[in-house]
Design a binder for these strands. Structure first.
Length: 483
RNA sequence: GGCGGCGUACCCAAGUGGCUAAGGGAGAGGUCUGCAAAACCUUUAUGCAGCGGUUCAAAUCCGCUCGCCGCCUCCA
């Protein structure tokens, strides 16, 4: 397995610290507002990575944190007129609401900064004792000059950074790039007792404390959005390695951004869509498919058109699945045996192809491509009008394989019926399944009497609502129109 | 200004040294169908931003140029 490591800038063989065990720490969210699509991408990507590592037989411990104390939370508390902890509680609940709807499973541990104040204080103390940090007026700063490797992740030189620094220089810092480990609390702000007085943790230190507590001093994979590389992850390395003297992370993994009109989707630009906005219009599976149809490190352009294409692709998948399902119960076990060497080969090699795509730095885009190659082979085979026990076995095998792969990617997991039902809901189509079935029945009567005009009128009426009918040999199926 | 990334067909998107450049969408033609839809078949890049170079061999490596984006401030 190869994994792209931000630290070395290369794809490397994946070798965990202890064989068959993997510790992953992914930076979660600061709970001060609703999550947008960018948060969804990170969550989906690391969720799939976790699933795939388990699929490969690793014993995975996946930790995803919440930053529940921070400047932005405090600011938000003021504007909403509630306490900082209420802000954190509220948006943590909203986070779960969105992620649950997106089908993102809970991490094994979901630690919160405020539940690790003791550990944080211990590390800050340790860093002061070791001479890596200093206290000024109740604030504690990490002294970047004391850590020669500083900049190794984001590949920057401290002296150059100073030249281009847009940061306002805090005179109390020994070096403008020094960053806060602990902040003295101002009047009215939340605080915890510490050796340096009342205060709260800085942003970066919580991840050091929580990853060490829940995984260990060295972890296999640490991930997050690419915007966390600097300063957040750079600072984490400095703190953690200064504190333990050990390498902090073996593989740093960062997902790319979502863009709109080629620009990064972000709060500050205001060009973002919240997860719930998008789920108003699209099925969660469509969102996941959209996010996985591009490699995790590349930027993804968000647009209605892209979402429609994702929906269309999924529809192709489920249409084929419906054909496969149709076939299975309809077959008489005694009828002639049909063989299709091409399909057999495609099925046999499918898992290998899927795995080699995923082994190559979790290339979900290619893996999905392989799924559609198989879909094409299945359709071709089904078009050849096969019969018999052997065919049935092939379809069953193909179906099992698709659902196994689907479980890893967390797409392709519905039944076709569930897919159309949820499209009905996502597109807010004003007719129930029973209503549709009733009209199909009426049309069937019309067709029996060869009343084509009436039959076509019913088809038209449903089409107006966004429902398409497909006449099969023995019945009529309905679908939701895409686009 | 420093650092990093990207530029593959009409659109999206894999592929990073060697068989016919995956897959999806869109378009055109066809098969099938009461009509449709779906599916399938054919078709749409002798070429991978441009120009040079390395190599028996490059979309893939190197250099330059152009264009776009990101990070350097909170950010997934």
């Amino acid at each position: 397995m190869k994994v792209f490591n931000t630290l070395t800038g290369k794809k490397e063989d994946f070798v965990p610290l202890s064989p068959k065990k993997v510790g992953i720490y992914a930076c979660g969210v600061t709970v001060y507002d609703y999550c947008h699509l960018g948060h969804a991408r990170s969550a989906v990507v690391f969720d799939v990575i976790k699933h795939y590592l388990r699929y490969k037989g690793f014993d995975v411990k996946y930790v995803r944190n919440f930053t529940d104390i921070d400047d932005k939370i405090i600011t938000r508390a003021k504007t909403e007129g509630i306490s900082a902890s209420d802000v954190a509680r509220k948006y943590t609940a909203e986070y779960y609401r969105d992620m649950d709807r997106l089908g993102i499973a809970r991490a094994d541990v979901e630690p919160k900064a405020t539940e690790h104040i003791e550990e944080i204080i211990d590390i800050v103390k340790g860093l002061i004792d070791k001479g890596y940090a200093y206290e000024v007026d109740g604030d504690v700063y990490f002294e970047v000059d004391r850590f020669p490797d500083y900049g190794k992740l984001s590949k920057r030189d401290m002296t150059e950074m100073l030249a281009g620094a847009r940061v306002e220089v805090d005179k109390r810092k020994r070096n403008p790039v020094d960053f806060a480990l602990w902040k003295a609390s101002k009047e009215g702000e939340p605080w915890w007792e510490s050796p340096w007085g009342k205060g709260r943790p800085g942003w970066h230190i919580e991840c050091t404390a929580m990853s060490m507590k829940h995984i260990g001093e060295s972890i296999d994979i640490h991930g997050g959005g690419a915007d966390l590389i600097f300063p957040h992850h750079e600072n984490e390395i400095a703190q953690s390695e200064a504190f333990t003297g050990k390498p902090f992370v073996r593989y740093w993994m960062h997902n790319g951004f979502i863009t709109i009109d080629k620009e990064k989707m972000s709060k500050s630009l205001g060009n973002f869509f919240t997860i719930r906005d998008i789920l108003e219009r699209y099925d969660p599976e469509v969102v996941r498919f959209f996010l996985l149809s591009t490699h995790y490190r590349s930027p993804i352009e968000f647009s209605e058109e892209q979402m429609k294409e994702a929906e269309t692709s999924l529809d192709r998948f489920y249409t084929t699945l419906m054909r496969m399902n149709d076939f299975i119960p309809a077959t008489e076990p005694r009828s002639a045996i049909a063989m299709d060497k091409t399909l057999e080969d495609a099925i046999s090699s499918f898992k290998t192809r899927f795995e080699s795509a995923m082994d190559d730095d979790f290339n979900t885009a290619q893996a999905i491509g392989h799924v559609f190659e198989l879909i094409k082979d299945i359709n071709r085979f089904l078009d050849s009008n096969p019969q018999g026990r052997h065919t049935k076995a092939l379809m069953t095998r193909a179906g099992e394989m698709l659902s196994e792969v689907g479980a890893v990617l967390n797409i392709f997991t519905k039944t076709p019926y569930e897919w159309y039902q949820s499209l009905l809901k996502a597109k807010k189509i004003p007719i129930t399944v029973d209503g549709i079935l009733k009209m199909i029945e009426d049309r069937k009567q019309a067709r029996l009497t060869r009343d084509w005009q009436r039959a076509d009128a019913i088809r038209k009426e449903l089409e107006g609502l966004g429902i398409l009918l497909e006449d099969k040999k023995d019945r009529t199926d309905w679908k939701v129109r895409i686009g």
